[in-house]
């Protein structure tokens, strides 16, 4: 069966994770929960990107005793998406930490975590 391949399963998992994170961001009122939703969204996107770079029956792009240099091209998966995702995860941590610092400051100013109480820029 075509759909029952590794990359399809992970792709669908990643897509559903993105939707779950999006649902968390738009439906929750608590700021911390919105940050959690953002981190789920992030994870889902990374899973999607890695699945797109997967080559069927490939192994990790690291050459050692198990994979030799000469016929590596037929055995390993695409290294480029992995490098991009690695960068994206680190940036994701930075963004999450920054958002949490903002949340702490906002709570200090307003004494509340509920998004409906922040009306300063509402029109």
């Amino acid at each position: 069966m075509e759909i029952f391949q590794l990359e399809y399963i992970t792709l669908i998992t990643g897509g559903l994770l993105v939707l779950t994170g999006l649902w968390g961001i738009i439906s929750q009122k608590n700021l911390i929960r919105m940050v959690i939703g953002f981190s789920l969204f992030d994870t889902g996107l990374h899973v999607i990107m890695i699945s797109i770079g997967y080559i069927r029956n490939g192994t990790a792009p690291i050459l050692d005793k198990a994979v030799d240099k000469v016929n590596a091209a037929g055995q390993i998966v695409d290294p480029l998406p992995q490098a991009l995702v690695l960068t994206a995860i680190v940036i994701g941590l930075g963004v999450t930490a920054l958002m949490l610092a903002y949340v702490v400051r906002l709570h200090k100013e307003k004494g509340s975590l509920n998004i409906t109480n922040f009306k300063d820029l509402k029109w």
Partner: peptide, 9 residues
């Protein structure tokens, strides 16, 4: 480099 991801990064 043996680790191609490292080479790319």
């Amino acid at each position: 480099a043996a680790n191609l991801v490292t080479a790319v990064i």
